[in-house]
Measured scan of single mutants.
Amino acid sequence: MATGGRRGAAAAPLLVAVAALLLGAAGHLYPGEVCPGMDIRNNLTRLHELENCSVIEGHLQILLMFKTRPEDFRDLSFPKLIMITDYLLLFRVYGLESLKDLFPNLTVIRGSRLFFNYALVIFEMVHLKELGLYNLMNITRGSVRIEKNNELCYLATIDWSRILDSVEDNYIVLNKDDNEECGDICPGTAKGKTNCPATVINGQFVERCWTHSHCQKVCPTICKSHGCTAEGLCCHSECLGNCSQPDDPTKCVACRNFYLDGRCVETCPPPYYHFQDWRCVNFSFCQDLHHKCKNSRRQGCHQYVIHNNKCIPECPSGYTMNSSNLLCTPCLGPCPKVCHLLEGEKTIDSVTSAQELRGCTVINGSLIINIRGGNNLAAELEANLGLIEEISGYLKIRRSYALVSLSFFRKLRLIRGETLEIGNYSFYALDNQNLRQLWDWSKHNLTITQGKLFFHYNPKLCLSEIHKMEEVSGTKGRQERNDIALKTNGDQASCENELLKFSYIRTSFDKI
């Protein structure tokens, strides 16, 4: 039985969820670079991206490699990797027998973001014989899940209580170790020597080791999670996991709180800001991140802002960003909400898709409305799209047979046209069989910064309504002859009103 693990408890099935942008060198404390989270699957090609990484700022997932063999891993080693800020997950990587050479110096898994409450997941690794993470000293947050690894031993010899604050939620089941077939031998045991430290858990006094050649490092209890030197002297209180010299914040392997210019500090002093819960960055760093993602459509890219001495992905609820200094300031009234469309555009074809934009005031991208039916549609669209004030790209209304009016965009005031449909149009209306009105132009103002209007096959939309939009939106004169079809717009509506004058002759039985 794995020490510190839980057996036999019912657990939810383990679901495996399925960018080499360097964020800056980590400095003297770390020998390499800070790398983003990685999802490495199918083959070993991307694994080489770990070569210079000291910190993975995010998670590391290595999974679904069915053609790899043990010899493929023999020359692979990433000794610079010290810390993973989120979680480490391995799933069905064939041929991998140990992690001792792959990650010989991995010391800390912070667990800032977890995989279903777990910071370390080893699942269905069919050839893994031992973990071998002999320098792993601290899992700051989260638990361990090690399950269905039929060859995995050296679990009962690990004292997880020396690595985690609590072992109650560890789930370590259905491994070879369960069948008591392992016969784990710690260093020196074969020669009758006791080389590794022994600890007591559940009444068992057991030597602690990761492999037959690597003991588990056990520091004096007084050192807590700070770690200790090879001689057993406690590291500085700002260290986490390990250090090369005692009581020196510049000799830590990793930091308990924050890293700044080669030393570990309790908090980031001005003019620095907390970033990702582990390091200090200056304003320029946060500003660069903001600008890199301002026009990016890459998933996970955030326009970072500053709030409460932190550089964070977005302002919290009730705050909006001051564009001059990136500071989050309290909103006066309802907060603006910028919604970034991942692929640059979004099609609204149902109430469900409209709900995804609920509360958005600025759309960074283009909207395509293609709704053919739905219950209580006008009210639903207004509830979900009615706060949109600005669209950076274009607005396209296409084959939306259920629409009679666009009044559900009740606050839309600006279409920038930074991206144009077919390279020309910022407003595009095609084949809307029941569209009769755009907006009530006596109450609604709309500016279209650039781009043209396109109207074709809107049989109940009168040309007068379209011409009014040209005047109000500032697009009059931009359109070419064929942009607004004269014969297919309003051709099934009563669009022309003329005053009919009647004269009559009164007659009676005795007068003409």
Rank of each mutant, 00 (worst) to 15 (best):
H28T: 10
L29F: 01
L29Q: 03
E33L: 10
V34T: 08
V34A: 13
M38A: 05
M38Q: 14
D39K: 08
R41G: 06
R41I: 09
N42R: 06
N42P: 02
N42H: 09
N43F: 04
N43S: 07
T45M: 08
T45C: 05
R46E: 08
R46Y: 05
E49T: 14
L50H: 02
L50A: 06
N52V: 15
C53Y: 03
S54D: 02
V55L: 03
G58Q: 00
H59K: 01
L60Q: 00
L60S: 00
I62C: 01
I62H: 01
M65R: 02
K67D: 08
K67Y: 05
T68D: 10
T68R: 14
E71A: 13
D72A: 09
R74V: 15
D75G: 02
D75K: 04
D75E: 12
L76C: 08
S77Q: 13
S77T: 13
K80R: 10
L81K: 00
I82S: 06
I82Q: 06
M83R: 00
M83N: 00
M83I: 14
I84E: 00
D86I: 01
D86G: 04
Y87E: 00
Y87S: 02
L88W: 00
L88P: 00
L89R: 02
L89A: 02
L90Y: 01
L90T: 06
F91I: 09
R92S: 06
R92A: 14
V93R: 00
V93T: 07
Y94N: 08
E97R: 13
E97Y: 08
S98C: 05
L99F: 09
K100N: 14
D101T: 13
L102C: 02
L102H: 00
P104D: 00
P104H: 00
T107W: 05
V108K: 02
V108A: 04
I109F: 01
R110W: 02
R110F: 04
R110P: 01
R110T: 04
G111I: 00
G111T: 00
G111W: 01
R113T: 09
L114M: 05
Y118K: 06
Y118Q: 13
Y118P: 00
A119D: 00
A119Q: 01
L120H: 01
L120S: 00
V121W: 04
V121D: 00
I122P: 06
E124P: 00
E124F: 04
M125C: 06
L128S: 01
E130C: 02
L131S: 03
L131K: 00
L133S: 05
Y134K: 00
L136N: 00
I139M: 07
T140Y: 07
R141H: 11
G142V: 01
G142M: 01
S143G: 08
S143P: 10
S143E: 07
V144C: 04
I146D: 01
I146G: 01
K148W: 03
E151R: 07
E151C: 06
L152I: 10
Y154R: 14
Y154T: 09
L155W: 11
D159K: 06
W160N: 01
S161L: 11
R162D: 08
V167D: 03
E168A: 09
D169F: 09
N170G: 05
V173R: 12
V173E: 12
L174C: 13
K176Y: 15
E181A: 12
C182A: 11
C182L: 04
G183N: 05
D184P: 04
D184C: 15
I185C: 06
P187E: 14
T189C: 12
A190M: 04
G192Q: 15
T194N: 14
N195Y: 07
C196V: 13
P197Q: 14
P197K: 10
P197W: 05
P197N: 13
A198G: 05
A198E: 15
T199G: 08
V200L: 03
V200I: 10
V200P: 12
V200F: 14
V200K: 03
I201Y: 11
I201D: 08
N202R: 05
G203Y: 09
V206T: 15
V206S: 14
V206Q: 15
V206P: 15
E207Q: 11
E207R: 09
W210C: 10
W210N: 04
T211N: 11
T211R: 12
H212M: 02
S213F: 00
S213C: 14
S213G: 12
S213A: 04
H214G: 14
H214N: 14
H214Q: 10
Q216G: 04
Q216I: 03
Q216V: 12
Q216F: 10
K217I: 14
K217T: 08
C219K: 03
P220V: 04
P220C: 03
I222Y: 07
C223S: 03
K224F: 06
K224L: 10
K224Y: 15
S225Q: 07
H226E: 06
G227I: 05
C228I: 03
A230T: 05
C235Q: 00
H236R: 02
C239L: 00
C239F: 00
N242H: 10
N242R: 10
C243F: 00
D247Y: 14
D247I: 02
D247S: 02
D248W: 03
T250N: 09
T250W: 05
T250E: 06
T250R: 03
K251M: 15
K251V: 08
C255D: 00
N257E: 05
N257S: 08
N257L: 03
F258E: 01
F258D: 01
L260Q: 01
D261S: 10
R263D: 07
C264K: 00
T267E: 03
P270V: 04
P270N: 12
Y273L: 07
Y273T: 07
H274L: 09
Q276N: 11
N282Q: 10
F285C: 04
F285Q: 09
F285T: 08
C286V: 07
Q287K: 07
Q287L: 05
D288K: 11
L289C: 04
L289Y: 13
K292C: 10
C293G: 01
K294W: 14
N295G: 14
N295V: 03
S296P: 05
R297A: 12
R298H: 03
R298V: 11
Q299M: 06
G300D: 12
G300K: 15
C301N: 02
C301R: 06
Q303S: 11
Y304Q: 03
V305R: 07
H307R: 03
N308L: 10
N309E: 09
K310Q: 08
C311R: 05
C311V: 14
P313D: 10
C315S: 07
Y319V: 03
Y319A: 10
S323G: 14
S323Y: 14
L326F: 15
L327G: 02
L327R: 13
C328F: 03
C328A: 03
C331V: 14
L332Q: 10
L332G: 15
G333V: 03
G333P: 03
P334G: 06
C335H: 09
P336E: 08
